[in-house]
Computed example of a mutant assay.
Amino acid sequence: MRLVSHPVLCNYYVTYRCNASCGFCDIWERPSPYVTLENARQNLRDLKRLGVRVVDFTGGEPLLHRQLPELLREAKALGLITTVTTNALLYPKQAEKLRGLVDMLHFSLDSPIAEEHDTSRGVKCFDKVMESIELARNLGERPDILFTVFEHNVHQIKQMHEGICLPNDLVLILNPVFEYNTVDTGDRLSEEALQQMSWWGKQKNVYLNDAFIQLRRDGGNHIEDPICRAASTTIVISPENKLVLPCYHLGLKDFVIDNNLFALYRSDEVQKLVALEGRLPACEGCAINCYMQPSFAVEINKYFWLALPSTLKYNWVKGTWKQLISS
């Protein structure tokens, strides 16, 4: 049974540019402009009209966009919940300007060991993450640590949790790695690794969506009976001010927004593509977290019930449940 029929999330790519070169990501390889404040203002109003509640200003590295504080301020003025994930290289310089504008601020950290994290990112940034944690807390912010879990680093969850997150009263978000396109993400997660993550997800200040674990056990999305609701739950906007469908990673088709996102999204041409969500050949086996998360939230099935406890836990700890109720 479908609970919500309108989009609830926008993945707003403010730029594809990045100041890191992570081996498990290919976004930074793409040439890219920056979104304009003028276009964003209109798009955000239309997103609100379409029923979107959360805007993820993403990239690339979103802090490369010099007008990010203004973009966030526009979203907040509309009552939208904001989220930003950053490698933290630029956060110390921009922390004051970002203060109070990001409801869910995530610092990416791939290892509790500086050398390993910096190797993963292709640039030295471990020390910037540590500096950013201290600075953010001094400003009254409470960032999360986003830990992408591979087969080779699952054993480091304990050190991340006990050595970095608990002492700083931060939430550790476990982000199981996913495959897409031709990006090399290493070996698939074993059953033992999935079990370890599931156990850690029940511990204090740890967030793991257990539906992610079950989806991997089930072999990901299956086109004959899709769980993916990417196109109907998530609006993807590119730095070129285009609507991308059915999702960023597949990017089958894009449409120039031209200051009328509301009408464009509801047009017959777009809705025909929306109807194909999860059913395209490339959708087979997909387990991309950023699109499955909202998919699990809008339809009652086994994944909905698996996702619910962790979702309630996170929103309670972060206090964002108040905004969800009021919006």
Score class of each variant (00 low, 15 high):
Asn301Gln: 12
Met1Asp: 08
Asp254Trp: 04
Leu63Tyr: 02
His249Met: 09
Gln94Lys: 15
Ser21Asn: 10
Asp103Met: 04
Leu243Ala: 03
Arg66Gln: 12
Val256Cys: 13
Lys204Thr: 10
Ala77Asp: 12
Ile213Gly: 02
Leu312Asn: 05
Lys253Ile: 13
Gly251Leu: 06
Glu116Ser: 07
Ile325Tyr: 12
Ala282Ile: 06
Val129Arg: 04
Leu135Glu: 01
Ser5Thr: 15
Phe150Ile: 10
Asn209Cys: 14
Ile27Pro: 00
Arg217Val: 02
Gly251Gln: 14
Gln42Phe: 08
Ala88Lys: 01
Glu240His: 13
Lys318Arg: 15
Leu135Lys: 11
Asp118Thr: 03
Leu72Gly: 03
Gly163Gln: 11
Arg216Val: 03
Thr185Gln: 07
Leu215Asp: 01
Glu61Leu: 10
Pro33Cys: 04
Gln214Ala: 12
Phe304Tyr: 14
Gly220Lys: 01
Ile227Arg: 00
Leu3Trp: 09
Thr182Phe: 13
Val177Gln: 06
Gln195Cys: 06
Leu306Ile: 09
Leu44Cys: 06
Thr58His: 01
Glu116Asn: 11
Asp225Arg: 10
Thr148Leu: 07
Ile133Glu: 02
Leu50Lys: 07
Trp316Asn: 13
Asp169Gly: 08
Leu78Ser: 11
Lys76Cys: 08
Pro69Thr: 00
Glu191Trp: 06
Val171Leu: 14
Leu280Asp: 03
Ala231Lys: 00
Cys228Ala: 07
Leu101Ala: 08
Asp187Arg: 08
Gly186Lys: 00
Pro226Val: 07
Lys302Asp: 11
Ala275His: 12
Leu37Trp: 07
Ser32Thr: 12
Ser198Ile: 00
Gln67Cys: 06
Leu276Val: 01
Gly23Phe: 09
Pro7Gly: 09
Val154Glu: 05
Asp225Glu: 10
Glu191His: 09
Ala114Lys: 14
Ile227Ala: 05
